[in-house]
């Protein structure tokens, strides 16, 4: 149950951000659903990048074993930085696409 405290904190700050965005910055509430959709698109891209990174990494590891004659563990792909880097890749591509429109 304690882990849900994090969700509660995020919900609280999101509600605060919503109020500030509408009253302070003057963002339109009606534009929020399409912003959420865009965010989901970006997340979808991140998932694609993550799957691609894992697939390429797996093939590289298997190829490096006979090529180098040394054991390379598949577990090097089991790292928390990979999803984060995939998200960065997706963000850049998403922003690039938005700028190109």
């Amino acid at each position: 149950m304690l882990s849900l405290a994090l969700v509660f904190i995020v919900v609280l700050t999101s509600a605060g951000a919503f109020v500030i965005a509408q009253r302070g910055i003057g963002l339109r509430g009606a534009a929020l659903p399409s912003a959420v959709m865009q965010a989901l698109e970006c997340l979808g891209l991140a998932v694609l990048f993550l799957l691609g990174n894992l697939a390429v990494g797996f093939v590289l590891v298997l190829a490096l074993r006979p090529l180098t004659g040394r054991f390379v563990s598949v577990y090097i792909l089991n790292d928390a930085t990979l999803p984060i880097l995939s998200l960065v890749q997706a963000l850049v591509l998403h922003c690039w696409r938005a700028r190109s429109k």
């Binding site: 882990s3 849900l4 969700v7 959709m37 965010a39 989901l40 698109e41 970006c42 997340l43 979808g44 891209l45 991140a46 998932v47 694609l48």
Partner: peptide, 21 residues
């Protein structure tokens, strides 16, 4: 784009299920 949104939603739900359940 619809496929990407769906994939993003699935990713988000999978994340929530993995971390908070």
């Amino acid at each position: 784009m619809r496929g990407l949104r769906l994939l993003g939603l699935v990713g988000l739900l999978a994340f929530a299920a993995a971390a908070f359940t």
